[in-house]
């Protein structure tokens, strides 16, 4: 059965590319364009992995991570963000994210990191 990934990102170009790339890699991809949609999607679905941005409309990436870690602590989370400040990255790892990728990113590298995160579950 295909692994299911939730991509939470508000940049349409990044969303489309990730969707395309991850579909090609053999995953089922569900997209949420903001934090609120992501929370709604998480209510009714189970995901094997979540890829999220930190700066999101309505509900921030940090709030979303907190929610996921509370409800489904075993779901791996990869943060994909433009933030490069050490404190933001440290905070994300403290909250329990599995990986942190900074933009601009390499799609091939992301693909490998997704594979690695999923192999741990």
């Amino acid at each position: 059965m295909k692994k299911k990934i939730l991509v939470v990102e508000d940049n349409p170009m990044v969303v489309k590319s990730l969707e395309f790339k991850l579909n090609k890699d053999g995953y089922d991809v569900v997209v949420a364009v903001d934090g609120r949609v992501a929370l709604d999607t998480l209510k009714n679905n189970d995901f094997d992995l979540v890829i999220t941005d930190l700066m999101l409309p309505f509900v921030t990436g940090s709030q979303l991570i907190e929610h996921i870690k509370k409800e489904t602590p075993n779901t791996p989370i990869i943060v994909l963000s433009t933030a490069t400040q050490e404190d933001i990255i440290m905070d994300a790892f403290t909250m329990g994210v599995d990986d942190f990728i900074t933009k601009p990113f390499s799609p091939n590298e992301l693909s490998l990191r997704v594979k690695r995160s999923l192999s741990k579950t």
Partner: peptide
């Protein structure tokens, strides 16, 4: 414009 957006978001081989 779109190509510029791609180039700003991707690095490595994709860029």
């Amino acid at each position: 414009k779109e190509i510029l957006i791609y180039s700003q978001n991707f690095k490595g081989e994709a860029n």
